[in-house]
Every structure is written in structure tokens, then in C-alpha cells.
Write a protein that binds this DNA or RNA. Structure first.
Length: 828
RNA sequence: GCCGAGAUGGCGGAACUGGUAUACGCGCUGGUCUCAAAAACCAGUGGUCGCAAGGCCGUGAGGGUUCGAUUCCCUCUCUCGGCACCA
């Protein structure tokens, strides 16, 4: 049978059926076996898979199948991150029920995944929109509430005017909604938060353990959590005696503070100016800043505007009276919303002070370019030096001053040493329908009361009109809202907001271990066996959001005593994007390639092979309609190898060769076979270099074909080489390999259960090695010699060669460098 | 501005701890087969000079270390990604 589209379809359908029916990839806890948990970031069920999914899941599948063949007990599950806005948008557009729409999409998605031949344990499939899943979201929320980690507060929040809902800080990218790119505005609302900041220290410190994560993801998380060590300093307002707290990371410069600045939103601003001659101007300035959007304020020319508040503060270290200003370059969200300004040693303060002719004082002496007068400074000096004008601290280095001044201030109650985190608490309530109802009840007499665990799940009501016109859709349903208070049994109302969908995905990896358990969120014993995830694979776009939240939840579960580890993902691979014509594939650009059409034309195996071969997994991958033909051709050549060259009977084939020459050929194939095993195994194990692993298999095929042409070999040796090839290739292109394995008489019910081939080091030893000869570092010749030949002999051999002699003519040999079995360099 | 990653043929990409640069594939050129085409197979394919043998140049640019540098060090250019009035 020739390798054809029809044949491929038959084979792929056949084996997908067998894997499914015989549950080849089903696993359960087995303490006797060594486990391996491979997980890909589960998809949002849009109904169609795209090339990004194909790449992500193919990478995961090769790893899963490779580990299975290596004898690991592999957990490789799949599910659907099924709550979220697209279902609501579809509901508005097509007038369908979001649940119906979502489940239909899931059905389509499942079919597409099956067509790719992924090795999932389908018995563990889950969807976050199932009540059997989201009831555990609610359970976790109640636990967090119980521990004081879930709380409600009124605050200025991020609001997306187009999605009509609140957003977490992590969902605002450069001032825009991560989903729809609308400009995010600030609104004052009362919302539910998770106290992720309580874990800031752990989330930051434990990054050190994640040695198998891409460094850039670590860096991104470090930046996001944003640790800064500093001091809170207490200034007194001269007139009222009230305390004004500022935050600084440079306590060594405190003696150079010549004014303080408040953010326009700072609560003290109004108090300072009320009833004074400054009131009108200050309030109108505050008003003006408030009208600028956050993104306007952060971008643009960074012009610093400000106004004098008409009041003075007292510097606690020297009792100096300095003016209080209000300026837009100080942000209410960071630190205390107030700073001490040291224009000589902070460039922003410097520019502001110049603009408004505020005083300056140098307190750190630049050793290279020492300045005495602030007026000589062209810019702030932010480097190290000796303390001057700093009272009892004069003469010490500022690095020393940093510690001693901080400790001294703390000792004298002028301030407090603290760590400030950039990370904010996670706003999780959303004014949307298609999500997990927050299990809270508002009672007139008891206040905010949690739903009791026994009453979970709080089911999402059906038949809700979704207009997209704002307000929580659940508020429409009287039947949903009206309930009784679990505490006093009086009539009460339910919370109508739903949870951010990132809540759902923050713990699904634990649920996969106990996917069908209806008694518990997950079974601690199963979690102890399967977790942590050995290899997680997904897109870089989740470097902060999902990965940070998942780490937070894991730490929370550990504190609950449900698990014994604090990091969920041992190893992380972030795959590169799939590009077409140099741009990211996207519907809006109209440059997508539908995986379904590619499967239709070439089959899943060819698609898998191409996507693994075209680039290393972490790099961007340029889709190429021509190049995929190469993958098809390769599989066709492998196929023909078995059709044409694999023979059941082992017999000696030699066409006019001496036995010695035939043995030589025979040895050579065996060597190539072992080289391929070694290369493929190492490439998968060390960094998932699938592209070079595939090229090694191509090399083996080239070699086998060449030996065939010459016709000198023992059949058994060639058969072995072909069998090995099929096993090595099986994780990459499983359908065709299952079929070939069966044709060759493989006994196991699936090639996935056959042991991965091992390397015979002895078979790789060569009788001759090629020695490269250089003269002055330039390649001048090659010699085949016996391994470990002695230097004198080698020298004689080389210098006797006329080609080498030509390059040595009339020159004295200065030096001879010999790298054993590799190279000789003659220096003249 | 700060941090991180990178730059290799016409293209995607290889190159172990410094040791034959361009593996493997795509494309291209020529050939075999065919009435023809497709497919398949074979050969060639960094630039340049040369009839040839062979020489010279060549991994973003410039310098350095070394017998020898894509690999190590310094300076610079460009590309991509992240963060960014963070006190």
C-alpha cells in the first residue's frame, strides 16, 4: 500500500479508535510506579483549535509518550477553561444560551483534539463551567473567607467600559484591557478581593526554587511582585501636628530632603488646604489631574506638574521645616502616596525642584566628580559616595549610611524599616454572568454571611437575559437573589457578582488528580502522588497572570494542610508563537492557517512532525506551506522503508562482497542506529530539542537507504535499524508508527507501551577516526587513522603528505598541537 | 530609561566543555522516468578568483585573548520581549 492521504486517514482513524476504546492512556495512582505529570495549559473552548494549540499540545504529547516508553506512569489530562466572556458575547450576538453554546464548543473541541492523536486520559476530562467543578471554586472561596484571605472593600478599581466589568491589575496591560484593548478607567466601587499580598514574600522568595523555569518568566514575576526594601519616615505637619508618612528606599539621603510631595489623591490634601487661600488653586489642580486617565498620566512626555499646598512639614532627623507640595509624579497606589524629595539625588525630584525653584542640598559626595554647590549639578547624582551634611553620619559611605540611618531612625521612632511590595490584592468579582457565583449572602441583621458548605454549589441560574448593557446579570433573577440568611434564617440576598475566570484555572491541575471525586476538592493522597506537575507547557502570555495565581493557590492549600509542597509546576516550558508572513496568526490579520485543513490534506502525523521540526519549541515558528511537504516526504520514505526493505526472514545479503567488507557495512549500520538512539534520547531529555532529534532520525533514514542501494548488509541489522527508527519516531508521529510497528509484528497492543530503545556504547566505537590537519589554524587536510594512534606515528604520516608539505615549504615548524582523535594544528 | 533574549546561506535552522562553520529540511539548478506533467529518485547548491588543482574571503560591526573564536572578553549597531514617574 503506498503512502497516500486515504491510507493516512484510515490509519489515523483506526488508531485513535483503538487508543480510546482500550483506554491506552488511562492511569490511576500506583505507588509502585514512578509517576510523571505532563500538563498543557487547558484551552478556552472556542470550538476550533488553532496552530498555537496544536504546537502547545504536540510538544506536551511527545513528552508524555516519550516518558511512557521510558517506563513512567504518565498522567496527561485535558480539560476546558470554559467560563468567560466569549460565551456571553455569543449569547448576545446569536441569541443562544451561554451554557448551550459552550458545551457545543467543547464537543467540537474534543473532536479536534482527538484528530491530533493526543495521548489523554479522557476519563479525567473536566470543564470549569460544570457545577461539579465550580462548586469547588466556591468551597475554596469560603475557605479563603474563613482565613481572612477573601474580603470586600471599597476602592478605586480598574474598569473596562467595553466589557462592563472590573479588572484585576494583572489584566490591565499598558493601561488597556487585556481582552478587548479598551482604555481602562478608574472607578470607585465595593468589590471582592483575594489577599494575595499576604503571600508576597513567599511568592517572591520561592522563585529561587524554580530552577527549571525560563529565566525571563522568573524575572517577569520578580518585577511584578516588586520587592523594595526601605523605610517609612514620619514627618509632622507643622501647623496641625498630624503625622505624614512617606516611603523611601534611600534613607541615606534623608538629610537632603528639601520638600515633601503628596499624590493629588492623598487623603491629607483636602485637610491641608481647607479654609486657606490655597484651597481653590489646589483643589482645581487635583481635579485636573483626576480627569487625566491613568494611561495618559503614565505615558506622554512625563512632564511633572505640581502646586504648593501652603503648609510645611518637619523633617524628624533635623527638625527642619520644609514645604509640602502636591504633584502628579507621585502615585497614590505606590508606597504611602507621599515622598520626601531629595532633588540632588533623585532625577525626578531634581527636575521638579529646578522647575519650581525649590532648594537643594548635597548629602552624598560623588568621589569622581565632587560637587559642593547644588547649583553646579547638571543632574541628580544617584550613585554611591560619602555622606556629607548628614549630622552624625558624615564621613561614612552611603551604603553604610543606608543601614545605619535606617536603624537609627527606627530606634528613635522617626520611622520604620519595611519591605514594600508592588503586588496588589487580587480583585476577583466580575459583573458578568458566565462565571462562578460568589457564595456570599447579605443579611440585614448579620451583614455579610458565607453560604454554608453543605449548600454548595450555588448554581448559576439559567434563563438570564444577557444584554451586555452593564450591571450584574444575576441581579435580574429574583429566584436567585432571594434566599435566607444561613445564620438567622431571615430573608437575605445573594451576591450577584461572579468570580474572575482566572480563579477557575488557579487550581485545575490539582483537580485532574481527582477529577471524578465528588466528596472533596481533591484527594490529598492523589495530590501527593501526582503533584507537582513535572512538566507544564503553555504560552508566555500567562507568565504573570495564571502562573502567579496558581502559585498563590498552591501556597494557600499548603497552609490548609491539604498538600505538602509549595510550588505547583516543577518544570515550565513556554512555547513560541506561530507566525505567518512574519506576523502572529490572528483572525483580525486574516493570516490564520486552519489545522483542520492541514490534517485533511496531510494527516495529523505530518502536521505534528512539521511543527516540531520547523523550530525549537521556545522559539517563534514561521508557518511555511512548502516546508510541510518535507515532513510528508519524510514519513513517506519511512513508510516505504518498511514496504520495500523490511523482510521477515533474517538472511545474509551480499552482492559480490568479501565477508570482511560486508561485516564492515553491517557494523556501520549498527553504529548509526545507536548514534540515532543517543541523539534522539538526549535531545528530548535535555531541553526538548525536537528539531534536532528529528534531523537525527532523518540522518538514520538517509543512511539506511544508502546501504540499501549498495546492497551489502545482513537483513537482521537493517531490520533492527528500521525497528529502532519506528520506536524513536513513535512519540512524534504515533499513528503511522503504530501501524508500522504492527506490520513488523510488534506484539504490544500499542507502541506507546514498548520500551524506549537503549544505547549500546560499544557499537559506537569506530575502527578509524578522521583527523583534521591545520596549518596555522587553517584546514589543509584530513587523515583516517586508527583511534589513539601514537603522536610520533601521526606526525610522520602527516609531514609525509605532499599537500601538507606544500604548506610547510621553507617554514620552520614552531609548534605542533595535537587534540587526540580529532585535530592536529601545525604552527609555522 | 532599566532588565532580559537574540543577530549564522535565498529561507527555517545545526554546531558537544574554544577544535572540519552552514547538520537536517525548504527552495533553486541540472538529470533519470514519462507522449507530457505531477510524484518519486539521483547529482549539485555560502561568496569570489581560476580551465583545473587550488587560493582568498565569510557567523550584525570594530577591537582583544588564543596555535585555533559562531563559541570567551571589551565597545558599538540593530531586532524582539518585559517593566517603567515604583520614591
Amino acid at each position: 500500500m503506498p503512502y497516500s492521504t486515504d491510507e493516512i486517514k484510515r490509519i489515523e482513524t483506526k488508531w485513535q479508535g483503538i487508543w480510546h476504546d482500550k483506554k491506552i492512556f488511562k492511569v490511576d495512582v500506583d505507588p509502585k510506579k514512578k509517576k510523571y505529570y505532563v500538563l498543557e495549559m487547558f484551552p478556552y473552548p472556542s470550538g476550533k483549535i488553532h496552530m498555537g494549540h496544536v504546537r502547545n499540545y504536540t510538544i506536551a504529547d511527545v513528552i508524555a509518550r516519550f516518558k511512557m516508553m521510558q517506563g513512567y506512569h504518565v498522567l496527561h489530562p485535558i480539560g476546558y477553561d470554559a467560563f468567560g466572556q466569549p460565551a456571553e458575547n455569543a449569547a448576545i450576538k446569536h441569541k443562544v444560551d451561554p451554557a448551550e453554546w459552550t458545551y457545543r464548543c467543547i464537543d467540537q473541541m474534543r473532536e479536534e483534539l482527538k484528530k491530533m492523536g493526543f495521548s489523554y486520559d479522557w476519563d479525567r476530562e473536566l470543564s470549569t463551567c460544570d457545577a461539579q467543578y465550580y462548586r469547588w471554586n466556591q468551597w475554596i472561596f469560603l475557605k479563603m473567607f474563613e482565613k481572612g484571605l477573601a474580603y470586600k472593600k471599597a476602592s478605586s478599581v480598574n474598569w473596562c467600559p467595553s466589557c462592563e466589568t472590573t479588572l484585576a491589575n494583572e489584566e490591565v496591560i499598558q493601561g488597556e484591557c487585556w481582552r478587548c484593548k479598551s482604555t481602562v478607567v478608574q472607578k470607585d466601587l465595593e468589590q471582592w478581593y483575594l489577599k494575595i499580598t499576604q503571600y508576597a514574600e513567599d511568592l517572591f522568595e520561592d522563585l529561587q526554587q524554580l530552577n527549571h523555569w525560563p529565566p525571563r518568566v522568573i524575572t517577569m514575576q520578580e518585577n511584578w511582585i516588586g520587592k523594595s526594601q526601605g523605610v517609612e519616615i514620619y514627618f509632622k505637619i507643622q501647623k496641625t501636628g498630624e503625622t505624614l508618612t512617606v516611603f523611601t528606599t534611600r534613607p541615606d539621603t534623608i538629610f537632603g530632603a528639601t520638600y515633601v510631595v503628596l499624590a493629588p489623591e492623598h487623603p491629607l490634601v483636602k485637610k491641608l488646604v481647607v479654609g486657606t487661600s490655597h484651597e481653590k488653586n489646589v483643589l482645581s489642580f487635583v481635579d485636573k489631574v483626576a480627569k487625566e486617565s491613568k494611561s495618559d498620566r503614565l505615558s506622554g512626555d512625563l512632564k511633572k506638574e505640581g502646586i504648593f499646598a501652603g503648609q510645611y512639614a518637619i523633617n524628624p532627623v533635623n527638625q527642619e521645616t520644609i514645604p509640602i507640595w502636591i504633584a502628579d509624579y507621585v502615585l497614590m497606589e505606590y508606597g504611602t502616596g507621599a515622598i520626601m524629595a531629595v532633588p540632588t539625588h533623585d532625577q525626578r525630584d531634581f527636575l521638579f525642584a529646578k522647575e519650581h525653584q525649590l532648594p537643594m542640598r548635597i548629602v552624598i559626595q560623588d568621589a569622581v566628580n565632587p560637587q559642593q554647590r547644588p547649583s553646579d549639578l547638571k543632574e541628580a547624582y544617584e550613585g554611591d559616595g560619602l555622606q556629607i551634611n548628614s549630622g552624625i553620619f558624615n564621613g561614612i559611605s552611603n551604603q553604610e549610611g543606608l543601614k545605619r540611618i535606617a536603624a537609627w531612625m527606627e530606634g528613635n521612632k522617626m520611622g520604620k524599616i519595611i519591605v514594600h511590595w508592588r503586588l496588589r490584592d487580587w480583585l476577583i468579582s466580575r459583573q458578568r454572568y458566565w462565571g462562578t457565583p460568589i457564595p456570599m449572602i447579605y443579611c440585614q441583621s448579620c451583614g455579610i454571611v458565607p453560604v454554608s458548605e453543605q449548600q454548595l454549589p450555588v448554581e448559576l441560574p439559567k434563563n438570564i437575559k444577557i444584554s451586555g448593557q452593564g450591571g450584574s446579570p444575576l441581579a435580574q433573577s429574583a429566584e436567585f437573589i432571594e434566599t435566607t440568611c444561613p445564620r438567622c434564617q431571615k430573608p437575605a440576598r445573594r451576591e450577584t457578582d461572579t468570580m474572575a475566570t482566572f480563579f477557575d484555572s488557579s487550581w485545575y491541575f490539582l483537580r485532574f488528580g481527582s477529577a471524578n471525586n465528588n466528596e472533596k476538592v481533591f484527594d490529598p493522597k492523589e495530590a501527593a502522588y501526582w503533584m507537582p506537575v513535572d512538566q507544564y507547557i503553555g504560552g508566555i502570555e500567562h507568565a504573570i497572570l495564571h502562573l502567579l495565581y496558581s502559585r498563590f493557590f498552591t501556597k494557600f492549600f499548603k497552609d490548609l494542610g491539604l498538600i505538602g509542597f509549595s510550588e505547583p509546576f516543577y518544570r515550565l516550558l513556554t512555547q513560541g508563537m506561530v507566525l505567518k508572513d512574519g506576523e502572529v496568526m490572528s483572525k483580525s490579520r486574516g493570516n490564520t492557517v486552519d489545522p483542520d485543513l492541514v490534517i485533511e490534506k496531510y494527516g495529523a502525523d505530518t502536521l505534528r512532525l512539521f511543527i516540531l521540526f520547523a523550530a525549537p519549541p521556545e522559539d517563534q515558528l514561521e508557518w511555511n506551506d512548502n516546508a510541510i511537504e518535507g515532513s510528508w516526504k519524510f514519513l513517506s520514505r519511512v513508510w516505504n522503508l518498511i514496504e520495500n526493505k523490511y523482510k521477515k526472514e533474517d538472511h545474509f545479503v551480499s552482492k559480490g562482497m568479501t565477508n570482511a567488507a560486508a561485516d564492515q557495512e553491517d557494523k556501520s549500520i549498527e553504529r548509526e542506529r545507536n548514534l540515532a538512539i543517543k541523539k534522539v534520547t538526549e535531545d528530548i531529555s535535555n531541553g526538548f530539542k525536537f528539531n534536532t532529534a528529528i534531523s537525527a532520525m532523518m540522518v538514520l533514514v538517509n543512511k539506511i537507504e544508502r546501504y540499501q542501494v549498495e546492497g551489502h548488509f545482513k537483513q537482521k541489522t537493517v531490520n533492527d535499524a528500521i525497528k529502532t527508527l519506528v520506536l524513536l519516531l513513535a512519540p512524534f508521529t504515533p499513528h503511522v508508527c503504530e501501524e508500522l510497528w504492527r506490520i513488523m509484528g510488534g506484539a504490544e497492543e500499542s507502541v506507546a507501551r514498548v520500551a524506549w530503545p537503549s544505547v549500546d556504547e560499544k557499537a559506537m566505537i569506530q575502527d578509524v577516526v578522521s583527523i583534521v590537519v591545520q596549518v596555522n589554524g587553517k584546514l589543509r587536510g584530513k587523515f583516517d587513522v586508527a583511534p589513539d594512534v601514537d603522536e610520533e606515528h601521526l606526525k610522520k604520516l602527516i609531514t609525509a603528505d605532499p599537500r601538507i608539505q606544500a604548506h610547510l615549504e621553507g617554514k620552520a615548524v614552531k609548534k605542533l598541537i595535537v587534540v587526540p582523535n580529532k585535530l592536529v594544528n601545525i604552527v609555522v
